[in-house]
Design a protein around this nucleic acid. Sequence first.
DNA 1: GCCAACGTTGGC
DNA 2: GCCAACGTTGGC
Length: 134
Amino acid sequence: MARWLVKSEPASYGWDDLVREGKTEWTGVRNHAAAANLRAMRKGDEVLVYHSMTGLEAVGIARVSRTAAPDPTAKEGPWVSVELAPVRPLAHPVTLKAMKADARLKDMAMIRQSRLSVSPVEDAEWAAILDMAG
DNA sequence: GCCAACGTTGGC
DNA sequence: GCCAACGTTGGC
């Protein structure tokens, strides 16, 4: 099972929205590298939900409940979306600052390339983040 | 095919 | 508000 991280601005769609709705179509990704990551997701993969712009912290764990399909919000192009369902919130959100300060996460994709909105998370990185989340 | 200009994202 | 990092566009 692979693990991932997705970014979202809570002002437009955040963890609380995902919990309230029970699942959501993760649309709007318009970057080829991020879209490739969406296509690589398999049902059951775990996904860390991170709040960008406001919050700047990982707040919860979701699960891929349906693999990539054409993004209904894209008029044309190769863009895809997946469906995500919430699993559980992190007991203590893990801030970007904390992630950057932790040597275990120095090679993490989202740290190395801050603009990438959908990125893979290695097993060791995932374990480190859960450790930091308490 | 190269590269400058411009737009967007996202952290600071 | 600024700037770095990228991606895209368009002139040549």
